[in-house]
Structures are given as C-alpha cells and as structure tokens.
C-alpha cells in the first residue's frame, strides 16, 4: 500500500491505444526498470504517473490514494519527481538556480531552497558546477543536474526517463551507482526507463517490459533475460541473442 502503482492503465489518442491495461508498482527504496522498444509507450506511462497525461481507463495510486485529476505540479508536491529525455534544464539559469526552482516550486523560501540545493549538489558530487550556466554544461553533467533538480524536497518516488542516453560505459556505471544511492540512502522508489538494457538488468530489482503499449513480461532480471517474448520484441525474431548485463558495484 505504500507504493506508487499504475492499475490497469490505458491511454488512447484519437482511438489509437498508446497504453493498454498496464500494471506497474514501485515500492520505496526499490529500483524498477521499464524497458521496451521505441514507441512501446514508456514515456506515455511516465506522463500518466506524473499528471502530464490523463489515463483513459484505470488508475494511478500513490500510497493507496488516487492521483486522478491532479496537475503535474500537484503530483510533484505529493512526492513524485521525474526527469525528462534530453534533460530539459532551465538553460539560462545557473546550475544551483535549476535546483532552487524545485525548492521554491515546493513552497520553500529562496534561502531554504539555496541551502538544500547546495547540500544536494554536494551529495551528488557536482558542487563545483553550482555557478555554471546550465545551457553550457556537457551532456553527462546535464543529466546529473536534472537528477539533482528532481531530488530536491526528497521525493518518495523518482521516475528517470532515459538518464543514460548517450553516456559512455564508465559514465553509465557512475550513473548506476548514483541511482543505487538514491534508492538506498534516500529510500526513494525509482522507476528507470532506459534503452540501455544492460544497465537496467544490472541495476533493477524488478523489470517491466512494454511492447506496443502492453506489458509483455515482468519479473526479476533473470526472468527478463530468459524471456523469448522480450527477445522477440527487441530483435523482431526469437534469435538466440544474449542480453548484456552491465556490472555495477553495489
């Protein structure tokens, strides 16, 4: 009951089903992976969970309470944070201002939001970036700032939309370590949407696989690795291909 849950969620755009009766649950402190080929409906599901898209059918529940009808900023204030593909930083603002926006958005004074933003940059290990203009950051730093911005106010759940896109293996490994700390040290439930299947298999306790808007497989990494349906969805055939696993230090 203390989880974030999509319960039989369907979304249709002009008759076209983007999501079809999707079930998903993220418990506090756990990392759940959401994978699937392009167009599977992953981002649509994140949009539904964060109030950017209304479900045509089904419900989104946080700790047993429905989030129906809440606007995105109200969902965020309930404790569900997200990041976006491509970062979507406030490019003309400094890094610390980017984090501060969440503080003031959640109703803090500027003084309190600066203090928390500084502590968060320190926690993530990017305190040296505080005064940099966000639009001038390298790609990897942009992603870390976006995660820092989402973590202000200690959300109960964090939804990461392709945070490792374009990262090198080492950068992805560093990101994995950070995500583990977010779940472990903050007790935050993490939903990780990622194309890097290896990263997801190495990091997540539980994985949900979407294809064409429907859940085709769900379970721990070993179940996903062995699944013919997952191989078929990714490869277009049931070819005997090993899904990679990224080794991550715990």
């Amino acid at each position: 009951m203390n989880d974030l849950r999509a319960d039989q969620v369907s979304v249709a755009f002009a008759g076209l089903k983007a999501l079809s009766r999707v079930d998903l649950a993220v418990a506090p402190g756990r990392i759940v992976g959401l994978i699937g080929p392009n167009g599977a409906g992953k981002t649509t599901l994140v949009n539904v969970l964060t109030g950017f898209q209304a479900a045509t059918e089904g419900a989104v529940l946080m700790e047993g309470q429905s989030l129906a009808g809440l606007k995105p900023h109200e969902v965020r204030r309930r404790g569900i944070a997200r990041t976006f593909q491509g970062g979507r930083l406030f490019r003309d603002l400094t890094v610390i201002d980017n984090l501060e926006v969440t503080g003031v958005g959640l109703g803090q004074s500027r003084a309190a939001s600066i203090a928390e933003a500084e502590a968060m940059l320190d926690w993530i290990g990017i305190a040296h970036l505080a005064g940099r203009i966000a639009g001038a950051l390298p790609y990897t730093d942009e992603r870390r700032v976006a995660i820092g911005r989402a973590l202000i106010g200690r959300p109960r759940f964090l939804l990461l939309d392709e945070p490792a896109a374009g990262m090198s293996a080492q950068e992805a490994a560093d990101l994995s370590a950070l995500i583990r700390r977010i779940a472990g040290e903050m007790g935050c439930g993490v939903l990780l949407i990622e194309h890097n299947v290896g990263l997801v298999l190495g990091l997540c306790d539980h994985i949900v696989v979407l294809d064409s808007g429907a859940v085709i497989e769900t379970g721990p990494p070993e179940v996903i690795r062995a699944s013919e349906k997952v191989r078929h969805a990714y490869m277009g055939s049931a070819a005997d291909i090993d899904l990679p696993v990224l080794e991550v230090e715990a």
Binding site: H73, G105, A150
Partner: peptide, 20 residues
C-alpha cells in the same frame, strides 16, 4: 525565479512543482 524557469521550460517547471 519560478517564473523565469517556467519561461524557459514550462514542462520542467511544472514537474518541479511550479504552479505556472
């Protein structure tokens, strides 16, 4: 500050809790 953030990225501002 919240308004300038919303000026640049309204979607991200809303996701940061800003009531635009």
């Amino acid at each position: 500050l919240a308004l300038r953030a919303a000026r640049e990225e309204p979607t991200a501002a809303a996701a940061s809790g800003v009531n635009i």
